[in-house]
């Protein structure tokens, strides 16, 4: 039970969505865009957020589309993780998101909400971080396609009222050799101790991790692809390079143990990509 009142809007067009957002904001009230609502409801129940209105974007066609158009895959920001996984459109993303939360919740979480959320994991972002993807956002009343990294450096940086409409991924990235690993403290359904998505292109391996640090980040591509030195050394060098980003917490794991797990995971990754 949420202890405060708010209004509910479910616009049918992007225009309606931005208009209503603006209108509410003008009266000095706080609107929020509402995707799956899983984070919004949980945090509202515990009193960690407050707002005056939610704008549910799940009836906006642009936000719920999932299709391949010319040479890119378009994923609406309000597409649920289950839909992404079941569609098989992008296997690495499908595998990554089907380890977020649990299967039932995946039917409610939207990709946009996961990436825009406050939780430090944002696992759905990992595949987007390594595939040169773009996002379509509404900025100053207009749609813009911008590189994912322009708005996301582990945290999402949007101005008030800006909305992610879609994620755009070049078709060439969809079926490359990939690897996704999620390690938890013990149970399968848990926050990641470390979740890693990696692909191998002609230019080499790209990998992004979440759970290791206080936000998702890229592993140093330069080190991963130093093909002239042995993999074991590349593993050590990678770990040395990101030491300062690795967190320690009471609930999931200490920093030392995360390093141990990362080492195993990287070794496994190199092994998997052999010959790929």
């Amino acid at each position: 039970m949420i202890a405060f009142d708010f209004a509910y809007f479910r616009p049918n067009t992007l225009k309606e969505a931005t208009e209503i957002y603006k209108q509410i904001a003008l009266t000095g009230k706080t609107p929020v865009y509402y995707g799956g609502g899983t984070e919004i409801i949980s945090m509202a129940r515990t009193g960690s957020v407050k707002f005056d209105a939610v704008i549910d974007i799940k009836s906006i066609p642009e936000c719920t589309t999932l299709c391949v158009e010319s040479d890119r895959l378009i994923i609406g920001s309000a597409v649920t993780l289950t839909k992404i996984a079941e569609s098989g459109c992008f296997p690495l993303l499908g595998e990554t998101v089907s380890r977020i939360a649990d299967h039932t919740i995946q039917g409610k979480i939207t990709i946009g909400g996961n990436i825009a959320g406050t939780i430090i994991y944002r696992e759905a972002a990992l595949p987007l971080m390594i595939t040169n993807s773009k996002v379509k956002i509404i900025r100053k009343n207009r749609l813009h396609d911008v590189p994912f990294f322009d708005v996301f450096d582990g945290d999402l940086h949007l101005q008030k009222g800006e909305l992610i409409v879609q994620f755009l991924i070049d078709k060439n990235y969809l079926n490359l050799p990939y690897c996704h690993v999620k390690k938890t403290k013990l149970d399968k359904i848990d926050y990641p101790l470390l979740s890693m998505a990696a692909i191998k292109t002609n230019n080499g391996i790209s990998a992004a991790v979440s759970g290791l640090g206080d936000k998702p980040f890229l592993l140093p591509g330069k080190i991963l692809n130093e093909t002239d030195i042995p993999e074991t050394i590349r593993v050590d060098k990678t770990i040395a390079a990101i030491q300062n980003n690795i967190i320690s917490d009471l609930i999931i794991a200490s920093k030392e143990y995360r390093v141990f797990v990362l080492k195993n995971v990287l070794t496994q990754m190199f092994h998997n990509f052999k010959g790929a």
Partner: peptide, 23 residues
């Protein structure tokens, strides 16, 4: 009421959904 236990699961258009995390 936090999406963790599933006791509140109902079907929405045939799919299971935790009704504590749905308005």
């Amino acid at each position: 009421e936090n999406g963790d236990c599933g006791a509140c699961t109902v079907l929405v258009d045939g799919w299971p959904i935790k009704s504590c995390l749905m308005l």
